[in-house]
Computed example of a mutant assay.
Amino acid sequence: MRVLAMVAIVAGHVWVAGAGRPFLYSWHVPIFFVLSGYLWKQNRSLGREVKNRFRSLLVPYGVWLLVLGTVAVSIESSGGHFSPERLLHILWGGQFATGRPFWAIWFVTALFFAAVVFRLISPLPLLAQWAVAVALFVAGVYIPGHPVRFLPLSLGLSLPGIVFIVAGFTLQRFRSAIPRPTVTGSALLLASFAVISLRWSQPLDLKQLDVGTPVVSALTALAISVGLILLAEGVLGGGPFGRSARSDGTLGQRESGAGMERMARVVTPLAQASLTVLFVHPAVITVFYTLGLSKAAVFFLTIGIAWSVGLLLLRFPHSGPLTGMKPSG
């Protein structure tokens, strides 16, 4: 599921505008938060949460920021376009780290802070979790001027993501009450795409703290995310992802036969490489756009190159600071 969502992220950065935008931006970022909640491990302490997320998110963020920032500053300086203010914006992150190749890095720190906040509220009863998450959602997106956007490293941008984590965790709690995931997931997807097609639900842009049509867009994002999860489980067989997932949150081997094991051997590395894809793909898109290629060509070439880089890095035992993965062995 993480692979599909990352493909949608790349597509959204290629086709920024146009008819396809509502069908991508309505779910391609929220689903990552929903998946985090769905795969949530209750027995982890706050300290362990911070340590794990620091290793898997903040360390790669820092390394890639250094790599991409060095290249960007060098290019801009040679062209006479660089300013100290630009460097400060890159280091501050969030909405301020804009332009090429920093389109997507805001999400990494936003996910870090959203996960840490949810760890703080996860001992609360489920209804209390929802109350806190909704309050943070409202504070983040509906206060005029969006003052939280000035907080460093996407701390403010993480606030709307917390409600999606709570939604994913709620699905985990009540997943056993959904006996026909394929039917339910398909129905949710069809209904969501109908609502989008009728323009009753506008797309979300969480980086801009734009949640589209009040309430409706958030519910549509949840419906698509849950629908995709249920449909994937119905097609693949077995229980919730949480019961057959690896400790790193990627799809693990199932006990349903050699076919599922072969699929897991393909899907797991692709999912593990997805963080690298997040960091690399804006630069790849930028290079191919300068060559005047069609959007379709840019999309497929970016998918191929960005994932190839991610998969290649996974082969090196000490690539964790770049990939966010634990060292093998």
Rank of each mutant, 00 (worst) to 15 (best):
L24H: 00
L301H: 06
G329D: 03
L209W: 05
F316R: 10
T302C: 05
V166A: 02
I285M: 13
R246L: 13
V235M: 10
G140N: 05
V298G: 14
S217V: 03
G168M: 00
L159M: 13
Q42H: 04
G37D: 07
N43F: 12
W307V: 01
L4F: 13
F316P: 04
R243Q: 13
V211R: 03
K207Q: 14
K51P: 12
G94N: 10
A223S: 06
V163G: 00
R149G: 13
L157D: 02
L275K: 02
G257I: 13
S45G: 10
P60V: 09
H89E: 15
S244E: 07
L293D: 05
L65I: 15
V73C: 09
D248M: 04
M260W: 08
P22M: 14
F299A: 06
Q272V: 00
V309R: 05
A135T: 13
G185V: 09
V148P: 11
R180M: 12
L65Q: 07
T323S: 04
T182Q: 15
P214C: 09
H81Q: 11
I121C: 07
S294A: 13
R2V: 11
L155Y: 01
V215Q: 08
G324T: 14
S186Q: 15
I9H: 08
G168Q: 02
G140H: 05
Y38Q: 15
V108K: 00
A177K: 13
S319T: 06
F137E: 09
S78M: 08
H281F: 12
V235R: 07
V16E: 13
K326Q: 15
V34I: 03
L198Y: 08
V287Y: 11
G94V: 00
G18S: 07
R262Y: 13
S217N: 01
G69H: 08
A258M: 08
L301S: 09
L230G: 07
S176P: 12
Q95T: 14
